[in-house]
Computed example of a mutant assay.
Amino acid sequence: MGERDPQFITVGSGSSARKIAYLAQPFNAGKPGILWLIGLKSDMVSTKAEALAAWTAEHGLGLTRFDYSGHGRSEGRFEDAILSDWLDESVAVFERLTQGPQILVGSSTGAHLALLLLRRLMQDAPEQAERIRGLVLIAPAWDLTELMWSQFPESARRDIVEAGRWVRPSDYDPNGYVITRRFIEDGRNHLFKGTAFNPGRPVLVLQGAQDRDVPIAHARDLKSVLAGDWVRITEVPDGEHRMSRPQDLKLLYGLIDQLVGTRSA
């Protein structure tokens, strides 16, 4: 098996069992590792993920990345998955595949899942949560389903409610992708607004001012949604949603660098 061939873990049991594909870069016991959480309809070998793999290898940092069910090389259909599934997979990857201190780095939907992963571990496995040194969030689509719902046209909302599904057009996929009522309803079980959740460690945000998918106002609101004054936002005036240009990646690496050696804001 080559180093580029994914490995798999099984998450869930019975009819809900699915094989989740991952790539793990060797970790250095003296440095924190990075857990990369992908964006919606992305995969673990995207432009940003590959650039991050090269940068972490150069700096002796371990990197774990994986595809949610219905994404990339993992099992399942996208339209059958819900946020709860992806959160369970994120927990399994963190607990079973990572060791020592970690920095969670999430892009868009992955940023929401990074926050959900931290909250789940703080509630259910505080000894695991202690391993998380901080979060770096790119274009954070926190409260994902409510953000999506607010952007859908009325006809789309009607289709989701009445027909149970709607094909959302995408700049990244000519076929669009299916959003189901089950996905939206499940997402409402995973909200942050109004909960005053205190992450207890730095949350560093990289946000493009020209982002049409995650408006900059949404990213800024995270400062008032999370308790504890942990959020710091780096705004890029000409940045868009992908944030994968060389200058964007340089900023991303700088934010990670801030967390490599410290747990304080």
Rank of each mutant, 00 (worst) to 15 (best):
L137D: 02
F192W: 11
H112A: 10
F152W: 10
A219Y: 03
G194D: 05
P153K: 14
E127D: 02
R181L: 09
F192G: 01
A209V: 10
R165M: 13
G208Q: 09
H112I: 07
R120K: 10
V136R: 04
Q128R: 14
E146G: 04
R212C: 15
I138K: 10
R188N: 11
R120G: 00
I132Y: 06
Q207N: 11
L113I: 11
R181K: 13
Q128L: 15
R158K: 15
D186N: 12
E146R: 11
W166H: 03
N175W: 10
R181Y: 08
E162G: 06
E127S: 03
R168V: 08
A156H: 02
P174A: 15
A209T: 02
A129F: 00
G208I: 12
E146Y: 12
W149V: 00
R165N: 07
Y177H: 04
D124N: 05
F192D: 12
G164W: 02
L191R: 06
R182M: 15
I184H: 03
D173G: 12
G164Q: 02
E185L: 15
R131S: 13
F197A: 07
P153M: 14
V178K: 00
K193Y: 11
L191S: 08
I132T: 06
N198Y: 00
R157D: 07
I184N: 04
Y177F: 14
M148L: 15
H112E: 04
L144C: 14
I132H: 05
L137C: 13
V214W: 13
Q128G: 08
S170E: 13
G194F: 10
A219F: 09
Q207G: 06
H112R: 00
D186C: 05
V161T: 05
S170F: 15
A156C: 02
S155C: 09
R157S: 06
S150V: 05
G164I: 01
G194S: 11
L135V: 07
L117N: 05
R119W: 02
S155F: 01
I184L: 14
R182S: 15
F183N: 06
P199Y: 01
L191I: 09
E162A: 11
R165Q: 13
Y172R: 05
S155Y: 05
H190A: 07
F197I: 04
I184D: 03
I138Y: 09
D213W: 14
G176H: 10
L121T: 01
E130A: 14
Q151A: 12
A156K: 00
E185Q: 13
